[in-house]
Every structure is written in C-alpha cells, then in structure tokens.
Design a protein around this nucleic acid. Structure first.
Lengths: 192, 192
DNA sequence: AGTATCTGCCTAAAGCCTTTAGGTATCGGA
DNA sequence: TCCGATACCTAAAGGCTTTAGGCAGATACT
C-alpha cells in the first residue's frame, strides 16, 4: 500500500484545478479522493471538513490573483494602471473560472481579514491615488470598481454576453475607458 | 390521508420563500417536502427533478423583479429613471436575497430567451434612450449598468461593505450619480 | 348511487456525498 | 531492530436525489 503523499497544500492545489475543470461547487471531498485514488475518509486526516477545503481553495485563489495583479501593476500609474488592474482581473477569471468563483466565497470576518483580500483593497486604493479623490469619494470609488469588475466578469462567465455583438472585450475596453473618465471628473480641483 | 394540494406553482413559491430564509443553494427537494409535510418522492410527480425546481424559482424571481422594476420606472425618465431602476434592483435583493440569487442562476439559452430576462434588457435600454447614445455605446452601457448593479448588490449581500464607513447606501447614491454623469458625457453631441 | 378510472401521495430501494470511529500498515528515528 | 507516530483503510450512520411500483381518495360516467 503505497502512500499517496497527501498534504493540505496538495489537496488545495488539486481542488483548485478540479474547480477550474468542473466548477467550484462541484468540488467535493469525494471527487478529490477519487483524483488521488484514495478512500474518502483518508482526506479527513488532512481537512477538517468540506467547508475547510473550500475555504482553503478560496484563500489560495485570492493569493494567486493578488500576485498577478501586483505584477501587472508594477511600474504603472493612472489609466494605465486601471486598465492593467482590470485586465489582470478579467484574464484570471477567464483562465481559472473555478478559482475565480472560489475567490468570491464568503469568508468569515477573521479569515477575510487575514486573507489576500486585504491586498486587493490596498492595490485598488493605490490606483485611485492617481486620481486625487477626497476621502469619502475614494471609498465610494473602491466599491464601484469592485462592483463593476466583479459584476462584469460574473456576467461574462455566466455567458451573458455570448451571443450578441459587439464582442465582450470591446465592452470591457469601453467600460475601463469610461471609468477612467469618470474618476478624472471626480478629482478634486487641482491646487496648481 | 388528506391530500396536500401540491402544484408546481405552489412548490415554486414555497421554494422562493425557502430560498429567502435559508439561501438559494440550501433549497432542496427534501427541504421542500418537509415544509409541506409530505414524503420526498411525492414531489417528483410535480417536478422533473431538483434542477427544474431551481429553474422555476429563477424564472419566478426574474418575473417578479421585472414587475417591480417596471412599476418603479413608470412615468420617470433620465436620471430619475436610472435611480429608480437601481433602487428597485437593490431593494429587491435586500428583501429577497434568496430569490435574487435564484435570478442569477444560469439558464440554458432557450429558457433564458423565454424568460423575463428579456424584459430586463428592454427596460435597461429604455432608460438609456434618455441619454442619446449611439448604437455600439448603448450596448456597452447596458452591459456596464448590468455589471455595476449586479456586482454591487452581490458584494453588499456577501457582506463586503458591512463593517466599514461610509454606509453602503451612500456609496450606492454616489455610484448612481456617477453613472448618470458618465452617460451624459457619452451622449452624442446634441443636434440643436 | 355505484362503479371505474385516474391521479396524488406513499413505501421501498439504490446511488452518491459527508463525517466519525476505530483499525492496520508504513515510515523515520533511536 | 524495534517502536512510536502517522497515513490510509474499513465500517457505518445520516442526508439528498431519483426511480419503481402500490393504495386510496377524487372524479367521471352510467
């Protein structure tokens, strides 16, 4: 009886791959056990329960996405940064739909506070710093950007724009453009 | 043995109520059977399967939401209409989180084409008519509005804005305001 | 009214998922 | 080498889905 070499990390990664293949809500402890050719009960030595598996996948995805976004943001500012941020987000969701869905899992407050979700918020604020918004506006803008990006990507993944012209990526560009204009309009009157 | 008087319609409505109470993905044929104090198998005379139950709830919610939106839109135009649309959407999600989640269920193309989803799109376009956009822009705008509203409401329901100032409804107002400004800016140069 | 049919809900059963309890075999260190 | 820790296993209970077939109210026809 050769050991399979299970660890929480390997299970999480395999779970993420499984999510991309069959959808996040089809990720089950049973399916994962089959993938490792191991009995279901064996996984319960490494995972507290099914919920923990999902949470781990979510945290992993948040981390991975934050890394990607950070990379594409490097050295950019203003509209350029906004577009890079948006594209990193959308590309990740298209490449890894299951992980993206995982990243949207509702986490309990403590878990969320310790997650890469915090980095996402920081990066969003960093982009907005390029637009000179006053404080309450900046928070509103963070929320708006989050909403648009999340909303668009969800709708696109759900196939909402599939059978209609124009192409989804044109709309994406138009939206990013519009958001940039909007934020520039909201900027505090320059102090020059 | 008194008959329970099950019909697909009653099951759908009860399913919608159940969704609001316990969450759409906790809606199961079993839970519904318990609610009617009837054996599980009995429901299968009225429903093909669990998926059909969910689809019916989704269609019901889309219809109900479209009715509400239509009501709040009556007699309004321009920014007033935009705000009414947005509020109807958000209010519905807050009052009926389960039904709202149901309305986001992915439907197969034919079902979707025959659903109230079509009315939603028409109403969105009706609002945009107040902004004089050229054709491709109008489509982009439809997509953007859908994204923002859906995204914001999802994030708010997921508790994303819960423990931070300012209040979610201020951000909502700010966003609606911004969208109005944005659309006015995109309007085709007036022909006066 | 009396009977025949039909339909609504029931019991039974199989299949899959989760989770817990307790057993056995393997690996690494003394 | 042996011994403990640990990795994976068997067994079992409980829940959800779905199908097959049965009994009894409800409906309809004479």
């Amino acid at each position: 009886m050769v050991r399979a070499g299970l660890t929480p990390e390997r299970l999480t990664l395999a779970g993420a791959e499984l999510a991309d293949e069959v959808g996040f809500d089809q990720v089950t402890v049973s399916a994962l056990a089959r993938r490792f050719d191991v009995k279901v009960a064996s996984l319960y030595s490494h995972l507290k329960n099914s919920q923990e598996l999902k949470t781990r996948i979510a945290l992993f995805a948040l981390e991975e996405l934050a890394d990607r976004v950070a990379d594409s943001l490097a050295g950019r500012a203003g509209k350029d940064a906004l577009a890079a941020f948006a594209d990193a987000y959308r590309d990740y969701a298209r490449e890894h739909p299951g992980r993206y869905a995982a990243a949207r899992l509702r986490l309990d407050p403590e878990t969320a506070a310790a997650s890469a979700g915090v980095r996402h918020a920081q990066m969003t604020r960093a982009i907005l710093r390029g637009y000179d918004l006053t404080e309450p506006d900046q928070t509103h803008a963070v929320r708006m950007l989050g909403s648009v990006f999340h909303g668009y990507v969800s709708l696109e993944l759900a196939g909402g724009f599939e059978h209609s012209a124009p192409d989804a990526r044109e709309s994406w560009a138009w939206i990013v453009d519009s958001l940039d204009a909007l934020l520039r309009n909201r900027a505090t009157p320059s102090h020059t």
